[in-house]
Nucleic acid binder design. Structure first.
Length: 269
DNA sequence: CTATTTGTTTATCC
DNA sequence: AGGATAAACAAATA
């Protein structure tokens, strides 16, 4: 499920264990979520270290232990984090379990295993945590920056462009649809065909949807209000909250896309 | 049985 | 070279 707000929600799930020490690490190195990393080092080095910090960047999470242990968690399509109370046992898809000094355990679970664990033992930020694009709500995410990217991806449908993490870190399928609906832009519009006005609209709605999502979902996973597209977009038969007309659903940019005909008009150059 | 899934990486073609 | 597109990954759910 995870886009930027859901990722923020899942980051917070481990917070009750902040400042506790790791007393043991359970993992199964053969699971796909550990692809490309030294999971044996992770298991060996983390024991005895204290949980010192956590943060997110788009869909990436970073948990710090001591001063030089960096644990990256990407939730993929079905990843989750939660805490196991003392005495509770992990289930089939709990791929990483950190036993803490309180007796509780920090768990990363992911049935589909599109998620990924990263680990570095370095004094400063590892590259996977340092080499990241500007966040959508940062001051470096400007209209000019956004416009340059739209020009570079001018031949692609705007829906596909919004899903590109190199410039829209944390935007996923539902956020992209919400942004385009609020901007009144048809998802099939080529990125290069957006007028100056529509580019500004897209910029402002992208920041707005990020803020709204963090406030409503990122805080306590509340259900968004019915005046968002969110509650209407998931299955066939939904109605546009603005026009009352049935929403359309179709594959665009390889993903199921929902939009409101008439409300979102196709821009042509 | 089929089709679907809030994501990313890789291969292939242009 | 860089961009566009589709397939692959894997398991649950309807």
């Amino acid at each position: 499920m995870p886009e930027l707000a859901e990722v923020e929600y899942y980051r917070k799930q481990w917070q009750p264990a902040i400042s506790q020490c790791i007393t043991g690490v359970y993992l199964n190195a053969s699971k796909r979520v550990f692809r490309g990393i030294d999971s044996e080092a992770l298991r060996r080095d983390l024991v005895g270290e204290a949980f010192t910090d956590s943060s997110t960047h788009g869909k990436q999470m970073c948990f710090r232990f001591g001063t030089k242990h960096w644990l990256g968690v990407h939730l993929g399509m079905t990843g989750k984090t939660h805490i196991l109370k003392p005495g509770e046992t992990p289930d089939k898809h709990d791929h990483l379990v950190l036993h803490m000094s309180s007796g509780a355990s920090l768990v990363f679970t992911d049935p589909r295993m599109f998620g990924r664990i990263l680990y570095s033992n370095t004094k400063g930020k590892p590259s996977w945590w340092a080499m990241l694009p500007p966040e959508i709500l940062s001051t470096d995410f400007t209209l000019e920056y956004l416009s340059r990217f739209l020009e570079r991806r001018r031949k692609s449908p705007i829906k596909a462009v919004l899903l590109m993490q190199e410039t829209f870190p944390g935007v996923g399928n539902w956020m992209a649809d919400e942004i385009l609906w609020r901007s009144r832009i048809h998802p099939k519009t080529k990125a290069g065909d957006l007028s100056t006005h529509k580019r500004r609209e897209l910029y402002q709605r992208t920041q707005e949807v990020s803020r709204d999502a963090l406030e409503v979902i990122g805080t306590d996973w509340s259900t968004p209000p019915d005046h968002w597209l969110f509650n209407h977009r998931w299955k066939d038969g939904g109605m546009c909250p603005q026009t009352g007309v049935p929403l359309k659903r179709e594959q665009i940019g390889g993903r199921t896309t929902c939009w409101s005909p008439k409300w979102q008009s196709l821009q042509l150059h």
